[in-house]
Design a protein around this nucleic acid. Sequence first.
DNA 1: ATGCGAATTAGACACAGTCCAATTGCTGGA
DNA 2: TCCAGCAATTGGACTGTGTCTAATTCGCAT
Lengths: 150, 150
Amino acid sequence: MDMTRHSRSNLAGVLRQHGINPTHQRIEIARALFARFEHLSADQILALVNEGHPETSRATVYNTLNLFVQRGLIREVIVDPSKVFYDPNTQPHYHIYDVRTGRLADIDADSVRVTGLPDLPPGMVTEGVDIILRVRSAAPESEAAVQGAA
Amino acid sequence: MDMTRHSRSNLAGVLRQHGINPTHQRIEIARALFARFEHLSADQILALVNEGHPETSRATVYNTLNLFVQRGLIREVIVDPSKVFYDPNTQPHYHIYDVRTGRLADIDADSVRVTGLPDLPPGMVTEGVDIILRVRSAAPESEAAVQGAA
DNA sequence: ATGCGAATTAGACACAGTCCAATTGCTGGA
DNA sequence: TCCAGCAATTGGACTGTGTCTAATTCGCAT
């Protein structure tokens, strides 16, 4: 019996707790996210789950990730216009994003305080507050690729 | 001579101040954004600029918006995984986003205070801080479309 | 074994955004 | 006025992410 922290049996339990029928594919997808505990794109997850011999289709990966998000098992992180990242950490926290490298890291929510956010219009509810600190290396970027005017 | 606030001649001046050669197409694109002073997607801008008789291609709209962003004339707002919004307001401010309707509105930065953000790794520079307040109507959403497990 | 609903699948599709080679159009000389 | 040169624009092909659909397979209870 595999008793590592993110064993299949443990993950099956977690899925059930979220009202998700734990199939083989769903467990493997959950494992890709929770074993690494990193921000991954759908594409990366598809590749991870299928290394060795392919066993999960692209449609299933997308279906499953959307299901996990709906059930509150994981979070979407929208920082890059070209792809969504999936975040196994559902604790309140924020993100720091390197716009050059695409690297995404967590900022613990405990230390951060936000005040002065406006009252919501009546009948509105907060889904969440995203804070994204966009950073880059101070070294001047090569301007070669900039399509110029002037 | 048209002296309204966002007349072509005024806009041409603004473009020049940002080192952008003010061509006809660029002025019309700037006008779509600055006259309305709203968050618009590339698609919406393409449609606005070409209502009446078409005069600007899709490639030019994308080229121009990217150029405006590089030159600091407008900002990108990344809140929706499916498309980028362009924001003519470059003053520091944050956003409130209705996840159901896709409606995007500004939050004035003056009233908001954020403390406790971590120090940056050495050699890193902040590009910007995005705060997105994700909200929805409190009315329970129809669950009809939810692909279920359980 | 069989039947049945749920899950998965391949592949077509939709759509935002990029790329490229060809054309257009402006500007500044001669 | 004509022309050369260069920037801007263009259509259309292309890429990549994500969705949809109809058909198949899986797992389970009987």
